[in-house]
């Protein structure tokens, strides 16, 4: 279960509306490498993870990703909170506004609604952990790309925090992969499906 804490993990203080930035940052809410996909990927991968330490990493990183989803939501909310109709009409944000007003809806920067394929649960220790390592790098690249587009320091500040967390999570998933390899049957040289096969033998 989860209990909500009434605070952001990192503060978001955006004083100027900016529909252009909202249109691109939304990808880290509901895009292919966004925080919604990240949180649900890790939290759903836990059930078939036989190692308790790695299941702990998935639980705690997955929970932190929920906090990141909220930070991105707060950024989008504050970027669009005081928009005038004129600002909306002349920006790319007009297309989003037509369907969602200034609600926070999970979609990619190109307008594609969130796709559950981002969850990527294979039920295999090594397939899933390699997926997670790649996912953290892809999210880090997306934040790097966003930082190239952001001209407001109020917006860049929490985006930099989120980018740094991708780097740290990559390190922890690297630890998880090493733990999995250290604990695999030494005859299982090619690291094939240790989560399922032992059960089948029994």
């Amino acid at each position: 279960m989860w209990i909500y804490e009434r605070k952001l993990q990192y503060p978001v203080r955006i004083r100027r509306s900016n529909p252009r930035l909202a249109s691109v940052i939304i990808s880290q809410l509901g895009g292919p490498d966004g925080e919604l996909g990240a949180s649900m990927r890790y939290l759903n991968q836990r059930y078939s993870m036989p190692n308790r330490n790695i299941a702990g990493i998935l639980t705690d990183v997955g929970t932190e990703e929920l906090a990141h989803l909220e930070i991105v939501g707060a950024i989008l909310h504050q970027l669009t909170a005081n928009l005038s109709e004129e600002e909306i009409a002349k920006s790319f944000f007009a297309a989003y506004f037509t369907d969602h007003t200034v609600g926070v809806y999970p979609q990619g920067a190109d307008g594609t609604p969130f796709n559950a394929r981002a969850f990527a649960v294979k039920g295999d220790v090594f397939a899933d952990l390699n997926e997670d390592l790649a996912a953290e790098q892809k999210a880090r690249v997306t934040y790097d790309n966003l930082l190239r587009l952001i001209d407001d320091p109020d917006v860049a500040d929490p985006i930099r925090f989120l980018r740094e967390r991708e780097v740290v999570h990559y390190q922890r998933f690297g630890d998880a992969l090493r733990i999995a390899q250290d604990n695999a049957d030494c005859k299982n040289f090619y690291a094939i499906n240790p989560a399922f096969d032992p059960r089948r033998k029994g």
Partner: peptide
């Protein structure tokens, strides 16, 4: 609420 500017 935490996502409001006023809370930050």
């Amino acid at each position: 609420w935490p996502w409001e500017l006023a809370a930050n």
